[in-house]
Computed example of a mutant assay.
Amino acid sequence: MYVAWTIALVATGGAIFIGEVMGQTPCVLCWYQRIFMFPLALILGLACFKGDLGGAKYGLLVAVPGLLIAGWHTSLYFGLISQAIAPCSQGVSCTDANMTIWGAVPLPLLSTLSFTAIAALLLIALRKEKS
């Protein structure tokens, strides 16, 4: 649980840093991913503080939809899904080349990896709770 919470904190801090410090405007799908990641930092933090492994259930309910959106965004970014069905018709493009950090690592991929790791760690925590 603590590792999942740390990942959520780093992802939340990274999203805020990229948007507010680096000045990179998030696309529509990035906003949706933030809607699911930011509460994870709070939910998992409270669960860790209280020593409540049951908090993994609530975290998983938030992480899975975030993972689905992040996976969709990553598929769009890499051209696996047609851009004709992308929700980013106005404003910042969901597949823009600027959607990277350090000029090489795609932000949608980082989000997908973060949600995947959190979901996997929460599933492990739930299995430990049952045994």
Rank of each mutant, 00 (worst) to 15 (best):
W72T: 05
A8Y: 13
W72I: 06
P65T: 06
A125N: 04
G13E: 05
S114D: 07
I124D: 03
L123E: 03
V105Y: 08
V10A: 11
L126A: 04
V3D: 07
Q83M: 00
L76D: 15
L107V: 14
L9M: 12
H73W: 14
W5I: 01
L60I: 04
L68P: 00
V105P: 00
K130V: 13
T112Q: 04
T95I: 14
R34N: 09
A47Q: 07
S131P: 02
V28P: 03
E129I: 01
V62C: 08
L109K: 09
C48W: 05
F17H: 15
C88H: 04
G79I: 06
C94A: 05
A86G: 11
D52M: 13
L123I: 06
L80N: 07
A117P: 00
V3I: 14
L80R: 07
I118G: 13
G91W: 13
A11W: 02
S82K: 00
F17A: 15
K50A: 12
I124W: 03
I43A: 01
F78E: 13
A117T: 06
A15F: 13
A63D: 05
R34E: 01
K57V: 13
T74A: 15
I35P: 03
F115P: 05
S82E: 06
Q24C: 10
A11P: 00
T100F: 05
I124V: 07
Q24R: 13
Y58K: 09
